[in-house]
Amino acid sequence: MFKIVKKEELSELVTSFEIEAKDIAKKAKAGNFFVLKIHEEGERIPLTIADFDTERGTITTVFQKVGKTTHHLGTLNEGDSISDVIGPLGRHSHIEKFGKVVCVGGGVGIAPIYPIARALKEAGNAVISIIGARAKNLIFWEDKMQRVSDELIITTDDGSYGRKAVVTVPLDELLRENNDIQLIYAIGPAIMMKFVCKTTEKYNVKTIVSLNSIMVDATGMCGACRINVGGKTQFACVDGPEFDGHKVDFDLLMSRQRMYIDEEKVSFERYKKKRGFNTLWKRKNQKRECI
């Protein structure tokens, strides 16, 4: 059992947990992820390791409440335990001194971009970060990102905070004005990463993305997470999760992410009925997007 030692509501849909997992904290590096399973009947879902603290023996994750498992997870509180936590998984980020780099985090993708930005900064890079979301209440960790970035740009789709734009607008400007940008890191919904890559391709700047495919074991055994990179089938869990974004078939990724959309609905409706979710909740989430 893995205890939740700290819970923070970062926005109405985004929650952060600090989980006791001493051995994982010792090994975690920027770019790794982990898998959790809440209880006996639960599914295994991959989540990002957004931070780790070797001394406290904890890892921090940030998740957005989307379907049944993430909503259920959101009901857990400090002191509660999660049955299974497995990690650190995936290859970690390759960090070195590149020069000037841009880190783009979209929505809940702000969380995993943070440790990467921090590692890049610590390695002596000049880090420009762009974080974006649909609206102000979905932006989080502005202070943390500020601390590890030389420059921080915030965008919202509706203009309720920062610049009214999608992340690719300031990114395009940066690339136009700075011809010394060596590397782009982008993490967020697949559609965002796709358009980030379209933008950076024009400038021929290497772009690393972190892919959030559906996974089961996440150790290479099942192939649920398979994607197409440069015409070759790869497993996001063991070959990734980071890939050269210019080679990724994002349409296939998005299609595969939707594979269980009907089942997810069934599961979520059943869960809501069981927990007696009220209409207020429904109204609040009408505009909920599926990532």
Partner: peptide, 10 residues
């Protein structure tokens, strides 16, 4: 046993 168990299968 879905949806009693959370993992879906086609």
């Amino acid at each position: 046993l879905f949806p009693e168990y959370d993992t879906p299968i086609k």
